[in-house]
């Protein structure tokens, strides 16, 4: 093999190695991620710490999806999956009013193409924290949302999935919303 050909071979091998590592990271890691189960069972009727000193009792039969769950001291997210419906809680520091928080969540929802929100209504947790709750729709899917604000913390809850499954979940979801607790628990 002449030197020019040897250089070409070395260059080809080096290029393939670079390409391989980039592909491994960009596509291999996501494949590995998807091959591992994300669901974890959660104990029934036991408050789950979402983060920011906020807890919630997940809807009965829910499993925790760890890929969408990131608890932290002053904020956090939790993703529960129940009967094909995704229930997402987002907790974070917040210094505004409940109306502003509702407007913020509605704005986020409508930014997602195709979703429309319906007028909201008042709701309340068992702890006595006032909140607002509403519905949003897109072709083939519907969703429920709720917002609570207390102790400089906001909790945004969205549940979305196929219409039939979500309607069946509504009673359990309503029960779960009432269990949202600020300040680490009752």
């Amino acid at each position: 093999m002449g030197p020019a050909r040897a250089r070409l071979v070395r260059n080809s091998l080096g290029s393939l190695a670079v390409l391989g590592v980039v592909a491994l990271i960009a596509f291999g890691l996501p494949l590995l991620d998807h091959s591992l189960p994300a669901g974890r069972p959660v104990a029934a009727d036991v408050p789950y710490r979402v983060g920011g000193m906020v807890t919630v009792v997940p809807p009965a039969g829910a499993a925790l999806d760890v890929t969408g769950t990131r608890p932290d001291d002053d904020r956090g997210t939790a993703l529960f999956v129940v009967d094909g419906v995704r229930v997402v809680l987002v907790v974070g520091p917040y210094h505004g009013t409940l109306d502003d928080a509702v407007a913020r969540l509605r704005s986020k929802i409508t930014k997602t193409s195709g979703f429309q929100v319906t007028p909201d209504r008042a709701t309340r947790t068992d702890q006595g924290v006032a909140g607002r709750r509403g519905t949003y729709v897109s072709p083939g899917r519907i969703g429920e949302y709720a917002v609570f604000v207390a102790k400089d913390v906001s909790v945004e809850i969205t549940a979305s999935g196929p219409e039939h499954q979500l309607r069946g979940l509504l009673p359990r979801l309503a029960h779960s919303l009432r269990t949202v607790t600020f300040g680490g628990g009752p």
Binding site: P30, D33, A38, V66
Partner: peptide, 15 residues
């Protein structure tokens, strides 16, 4: 590449 790779690796850590 890092956007998908990092997210996947953090998910793997969570799992």
């Amino acid at each position: 590449a890092a956007i998908s790779g990092s997210t996947a690796l953090q998910n793997i850590l969570a799992k």
